[in-house]
């Protein structure tokens, strides 16, 4: 047995892949199958799962409703479709905003003196030492009516003798966007920084030598060479933003409901795991589709490994 193993390369390969396979199977494949099975089931009146095969949950998710105001037997209810679209557009907006903030920052860090670089990177990472939820709560403190931002604006307005009523910033889509951008910024800065830092300085000189000014050098050399970092960052930001529910829960309240919140509430409040499972699978499929087309166009950022 041992002798056979020593001689056979393919047997060795199988053995080496075994832990990963088991891990993937137990923690990914089985839960996924379970979710799928549950999503085709029905909710019993006491909140348990009746295992059958019905597409009811999916039909409901895409707007089929029997609970119509007009008294019809069936009608289109855009509630869940809107939640899905809202999640998609929020993830998109967050990613775009994060890129536009992270790129200049990463560029600045990569081009700064090597001695200062580590300090800057350290500063980028410091917030991550605090619990995710606590960081979001901090934004609640800043954004609410009696929060720091309103106090400061009020104080300035008072000095200028302009009447000021505190802004309603909390529990708005804007608040959720700000929170998301804040939470995921480091995950974009780091891969972009890594790819910028890797660019050989002599390439900038070569570009200048060949007649390119700094704008052209940036567009033709720096930007293309840092794209792997942007792609990796996008994957690291877009996917979690699609699924997270904490930011929208705390900063969006009942106003901004995302797929994440929908799923969470189905499992915990509404006690309907079948509908929650269906929503989970749809979320996964949606994320996969977007990521698939994105990576087909731009490739997998190789920086994802580094980050």
């Amino acid at each position: 047995m041992l002798k056979r193993l020593r001689e056979s390369k393919s047997a060795q390969g199988t053995l080496l892949a075994l832990p990963t396979t088991v891990w993937l199977f137990v923690l990914l494949i089985i839960p996924l199958i379970l979710t799928a099975v549950v999503s085709f089931g029905k909710r019993s009146p006491d909140g348990n799962v009746i295992y059958t095969f019905t597409l009811d949950n999916y039909i409901r998710l895409f707007g089929y409703s029997t609970n119509c105001a007009s008294g019809q037997a069936a009608c289109f209810d855009p509630l869940y479709v809107n939640i899905l679209l809202r999640s998609l557009s929020l993830a998109f907006n967050t990613t775009v905003l994060v890129i536009s903030l992270a790129y200049p920052l990463a560029y600045f860090i990569a081009r700064s003196h090597p001695k200062q670089r580590n300090t800057y990177l350290f500063m980028v990472l410091i917030p991550l030492w605090t619990n995710f939820v606590i960081r979001v709560y901090a934004w609640m403190m800043l954004l609410r009516k009696e929060g720091a931002i309103n106090i400061i604006i009020g104080w300035v307005m008072n000095l200028l003798h302009i009447p000021f009523t505190p802004l309603e910033m909390l529990y708005t889509p804007g608040a959720v966007l700000v929170g998301m951008v804040y939470e995921f910024l480091p995950f974009m800065i780091l891969p972009i920084y890594t790819s910028l830092e890797k660019i050989d300085l002599s390439l900038y000189e070569a570009a200048a030598d060949l007649g390119a000014n700094s704008i052209k050098t940036f567009l033709r050399v720096t930007l293309p060479l840092s794209m792997p970092g942007v792609v990796a960052g996008t994957i690291l930001v877009f996917i979690p933003v699609m699924g997270t529910f904490i930011v929208s829960d705390i900063l969006g309240g009942r106003q901004v409901i995302l797929v994440g919140n929908l799923i969470q509430r189905q499992f915990l409040d509404a006690r309907d795991p079948t509908f929650g499972s269906a929503a989970s699978l749809i979320l996964m499929v949606m994320t996969l589709i977007v990521t698939y087309f994105y990576t087909r166009k731009f490739g997998f950022g190789e920086e994802i490994v580094v980050a």
């Binding site: 050989d200 002599s202 070569a206 570009a207 030598d209 060949l210 007649g211 000014n213």
Partner: peptide
Amino acid sequence: PFQRKVNTVFQSYALF
């Protein structure tokens, strides 16, 4: 550099 009519061949080549 981009306004000088000289060009450089770099030691490390510095190819894009």
